[in-house]
Design a protein around this nucleic acid. Structure first.
Length: 577
RNA sequence: GCCGGCGUGGCUCAAUGGCAGAGCAGCGCUUUCGUAAAGCGCGGGUUGGAGGUUCGAUUCCUCUCGCCGGCUCCA
C-alpha cells in the first residue's frame, strides 16, 4: 500500500479525510490549533493542540461531525496566497504551527485548500469534495511531539483511516482483529511461552518450560549451523570493568542504555553488547593472517536500559540474547565475507519459514568514531556484497551505529508485516581502539577489520516474531510438545503408555493425557495448546498396533500403524517444515 | 522519558461510596467416552502498592509501580 505516492487516489482520499477530521475538531473545539495532518500507511492522522485532553469517548462525537461534513459535501477548492497574505491569515486565527510551516516554505506563494468553512495550508491533492469519502473511521488518540522532537510541545494526534468502499474498510478492520488474535503477548501468555513478572522489573523476560523448550530448540539449531560454517563458539562474563567500556566507546556513546555497577571501589557495567568480550578473546594470543577470517560466535545475553515507554512485549525488552558473531578479517576479505553472511542469513531465516525480506543500508550518523574514509570504504563493501546477492535495498542515511555502517534485514511475516532482526555491521573503529593486530605474510603487524553480525537478532524478538508469524501454531520441530497421546478410555492406558515410550524413544517430545476428562475435552485441551499431533488410542488401535492421528487444526487423519507414524514424524522434524 | 487510557482470584470479565460476583482453570467425587467444553461439590481475592477524603473506599483525590495506544511518515 503506497500512499507516499502523492499522485495516488488513496493519498488524496486520506488526506481529504484528515482535513475533514480537522474541520470537525475545529467545529467542536474552536480553540484547537492545527499542526500537520498527512496520510500514512494505514490511514491518516492530524496533530492538534487542544486545551483539554481527548479520550476515546470523544472520537465518536468527532466522527459524527465528520459524517455531517461529508454529507454537506463541500467542494475542495484550491487557491494560492502570497506568504505575506497567508501569514496574516493564519496569524489572525492564532494558528501558530501553520505560521511555522509557512516560515519553512521557500516559494513566495503557498498553496491553500478550502472546503466549506475550513481553510488549510495544504499542497493537496484532494478528492473532489467531502462527499467523496465513502468509508472512514477514527481509530485512536495518542500524544505526538511537534515535528517529532521531544523538546517541542506535545500535541494530540488523532488516527483514522479511510477507504474507497465500506468493504475495504471492513477488510482493514478485520485485518486489525486478525493481528490482535496473533499478538504474541496474548498467545505467549496462553501458551506459556514467556512471561513478565511485575515485581522482577519491566522488560525482563522469563521463560516457563514451554518457552524454554522453544528457546532450547532454536539455540541448538543456531549453534550447530554456526559450527557448520566455520564459526567458533566463545563465551564471556555478563559484566566487565568500566575501563573496557570506556575504551570501546560505549561509555561515551551508549551510556544512557547501560546498567552500571560499583563493587569494591571499581566501576563495572553489565554488557549491552558482546563485542568487547569477543575482542578481549581475540587479544588472548598473537593472531596470524592464516586465521582470518576469524569468526567468534556467542549466544550473548545483553542488558540495555531502554526507556520505559518503548518496551513492547518480546519485541523491545531490557535483557535479551543475541545470536552474535564478530568476524575479524582483512579488508580484501570483506566483500566475500559479507556475501557469506548474507547467504547464511537467508538460509537461517528460511529454515524458520521466512522467505521475504526488506533490506536497508544505514550510513554514517552524526555521532561516530573512526575516520570518514573508513566509513566510505565500509559502506561500499556492504553495497557490493548486496549487489552480488542481487538484493535490492534502501539507504537509510545517518542511521548507522556509532562504530560503523550496517545492513539491516527485516523479515516479512504471514500478514505482510515487517520485523527487524538481522544486522551486519562493519567496524573499522573498535580494532583501532583495542589495538588489535595480526601478523601478515610480511611478518609485520596489521590491523584487522571487524564485522558484527546477528542473524535472528534478539532471540526474544525472534520468538515474538515466530509466535505472530505462525499465530502460535509453531512448526513441528519447534513445538515445545510435539504430540499428546490420548487413550479413549482407561482400558487403553497401558497401550497409550507404550505409544508414549515409543515416540519418546524416537526423540519426539510427547505427553500423555490420562485424565478422566471426556475424549472431546482432552482433544480440545491439546488443540488449544496448539500441539501439532494428537495421537488417539482406542480399542481398534490397540488391536491393530496403530494410532489414530489428529493433525492440529486440520483434524482427524485416520489410523496409521504406529511405526509408520513415528517414521513420518521423525522425518518431518528433520525436514523442518 | 513524554501524552492519554487502563489495573478486580491462575485466566477472561461483572459489580457498587455500604458484606466483592460469574465462567474457565484447579482440587474432590461420579462418569470410561471414537475426535474442540460430561455432571455435582469444594477451595481461592486486605480489588497493583502507599497515603488522603469519608461514619464507611474496591469505587473519590494525590503519589507510586506496572501494562496498553502512540510519540518515524513534516502543508
Amino acid at each position: 500500500m503506497i500512499v507516499k505516492d502523492k499522485t495516488s487516489d488513496l493519498y488524496a482520499l486520506r488526506h481529504s479525510a484528515a482535513h475533514v477530521m480537522a474541520q470537525a475538531v475545529k467545529r467542536k473545539f474552536p480553540q484547537a490549533k492545527l499542526a500537520i495532518g498527512p496520510p500514512v500507511e494505514d490511514g491518516f492522522y492530524y496533530d492538534i493542540d487542544l486545551p483539554q485532553p481527548l479520550t476515546d469517548a470523544d472520537l465518536g462525537g468527532i466522527e459524527a461531525e465528520m459524517r455531517k461534513i461529508i454529507k454537506e459535501n463541500y467542494t475542495f477548492e484550491h487557491s494560492t496566497m502570497t506568504k505575506a497574505e497567508a501569514t496574516k491569515f493564519f496569524q489572525e486565527r492564532g494558528e501558530k504551527f501553520k505560521l511555522e510551516l509557512i516560515g519553512g516554505i521557500a516559494d513566495d506563494h503557498v498553496s491553500i485548500y478550502t472546503d466549506g468553512d475550513f481553510i488549510d495550508l495544504c499542497e493537496g491533492p484532494h478528492v473532489k469534495s467531502t462527499g467523496a469519502i465513502p468509508a472512514m473511521k477514527l481509530l485512536s488518540i495518542a500524544g505526538a511531539y511537534w515535528r517529532g522532537d521531544e523538546h517541542n510541545p506535545q500535541l494530540q494526534r488523532i488516527y483514522g483511516t479511510a477507504f474507497f468502499s465500506q468493504e475495504e474498510l471492513d477488510a482493514f478492520l478485520k485485518k486489525i482483529e486478525e493481528a490482535k488474535a496473533r499478538d504474541h503477548r496474548k498467545l505467549g501468555k496462553e501458551l506459556g511461552l514467556y512471561a513478565f513478572i511485575e515485581e522482577a522489573g519491566p522488560g525482563m523476560v522469563f521463560y516457563p518450560p514451554a518457552g524454554a523448550m522453544l528457546r532450547h530448540q532454536i539455540e541448538q539449531f543456531v549453534r550447530e549451523e554456526h559450527l557448520k560454517r566455520g564459526y567458533q563458539l566463545v563465551m564471556g562474563p555478563p559484566i566487565l570493568r568500566a575501563d573496557i567500556w570506556k575504551r570501546s566507546g560505549h561509555l561515551d556513546y551508549y551510556k544512557e542504555y547501560m546498567y552500571l555497577i560499583e563493587s569494591e571501589g571499581q566501576q563495572y557495567a553489565v554488557k549491552p553488547m558482546n563485542c568487547p568480550g569477543h575482542i578481549l578473546i581475540y587479544g588472548l594470543q598473537t593472531r596470524s593472517y592464516r586465521e582470518l577470517p576469524l569468526r567468534f560466535f556467542e549466544l550473548g545475553n545483553v542488558c540495555r536500559n531502554e526507556k520505559g515507554g518503548v518496551l513492547h512485549g518480546l519485541l523491545r525488552v531490557r535483557g535479551f540474547t543475541q545470536d552474535d558473531a564478530h568476524i575479524f578479517l582483512r579488508e580484501e576479505q570483506l566483500v566475500d565475507e559479507i556475501d557469506r553472511v548474507v547467504t547464511f542469513t537467508r538460509e537461517m531465516l528460511g529454515a524458520f519459514g521466512f522467505a521475504e525480506f526488506a533490506v536497508e543500508i544505514s550510513t554514517r550518523p552524526a555521532k561516530f568514531i573512526g575516520t570518514p574514509a573508513d566509513w566510505d570504504r565500509a559502506e561500499s563493501a556492504l553495497k557490493t556484497a548486496l549487489e552480488r546477492q542481487r538484493m535490492t535495498y534502501q539507504i537509510h542515511a545517518g542511521e548507522g551505529a556509532f562504530y560503523g555502517p550496517k545492513i539491516d534485514i527485516k523479515i516479512k511475516d504471514a500478514l505482510g508485516r515487517e520485523w527487524q532482526c538481522s544486522t551486519i555491521q562493519c567496524d573499522f573503529a573498535l580494532p583501532e581502539r583495542f589495538a588489535l593486530t595480526y601478523a601478515g605474510e610480511d611478518g609485520k603487524e596489521h590491523r584487522p577489520i571487524m564485522l558484527h553480525r546477528a542473524i535472528l537478532g534478539s532471540l526474544e524478538r525472534f520468538v515474538g516474531t515466530l509466535i505472530e508469524h505462525y499465530a502460535g501454531a509453531l512448526p513441528l520441530w519447534l513445538s515445545p510438545v510435539q504430540a499428546v497421546v490420548v487413550p479413549i478410555t482407561s482400558e487403553q492406558a497401558g497401550y497409550a503408555r507404550e505409544v508414549l515410550q515409543r515416540l519418546a524413544a524416537a526423540g519426539l517430545r510427547v505427553e500423555i493425557d490420562e485424565s478422566d476428562n471426556t475424549l472431546n475435552k482432552r482433544i480440545r485441551a491439546a488443540e488449544l495448546r496448539k500441539v501439532p499431533y494428537i495421537v488417539v488410542a482406542g480399542r481398534r488401535e490397540v488391536e491393530a498396533q496403530s494410532v489414530a492421528v489428529r493433525k492440529r487444526v486440520v483434524g482427524d487423519q485416520g489410523a496409521v500403524p504406529l511405526e509408520q507414524f513415528v517414521e513420518r514424524a521423525v522425518q518431518e522434524v528433520r525436514d523442518k517444515r
